[in-house]
Amino acid sequence: MPSRPGARPRRPGMWAIRGPLSSRQYWLFAALGLLAPLGLWWVVSSGATVDKVFLPGPVDVFNRLIKWYAEDDLLSDMGISIYRVTTGFLVSAVIALPLGLLIGTFRPVQAVLEPLTDFIRYMPAVAFIPLVMLWVGIEESSKIAIIFIGTFFQMVLMMAEDVRRVPLAQIEAAQTMGATRGESVKLVIFQSAKPALLDTLRVTMGWAWTYLVVAELVAANSGLGYSILKAQRFLQTDKIFVGILLIGLIGLVMDQLFRLAHRKAFPWLHLRS
């Protein structure tokens, strides 16, 4: 087509490669992405041929949620699960943070700990259950121990990598201003790695939740994971749905809280949009 005089290129549309998307459009698509599966679920489950035990509909699941809340103390199940995940995660974080800092800073520590950690992290956390029961018992601490085993080793390696990514020039600049080794670690390496470390915490928090159901295999009599397992025995498929969806929802909320903390704590990384 011959170009007319005065013709201007149009603003690229949303389907241009890496094209723009207004925030209204973004939320529209996000809502579509969330509501479409819900609609599909509703349509499929309301077909006359589908057994409720096989696939309960959204309404059944919602009713079960209300019933669980009203009759079976849903809140205490949620509370105990959140407690287990958070405690296991925090114990991991408190130990992994200094270790990651040391591995990422001092080569001898890296040589001693990194191959070992790499080795252990490939061992399935689930397979540790018998050992955990043997060593830690069947108290609350055993559930926390399983979540710890599932998250700690990954966390250490990721944190060590975060620390290693601190630009050498930042460290060397401090040294040529007279910083001691301790000051370089405290005032430069740790400060510089902080945003990445918080991101690592956010990601590993998600993994801690995936180990919840496994952890509650160990002689639990409460919690979301335990409830899912129990519901399986009684073929309460709708309750399994409620449990899974709640875990997803709590995870999503925690993820958003981490993102909010990131924006508040590190404003220089969130200057635009």
């Binding site: 630009p167 020039a169 930042q170 600049a173 400060q191 510089s192 902080k194 220089w268 990384l269």
Partner: peptide, 10 residues
């Protein structure tokens, strides 16, 4: 003084 990445962004 280095070519880059030496300032403290925080």
């Amino acid at each position: 003084v280095f070519q880059h990445y030496s300032l403290y962004p925080w």
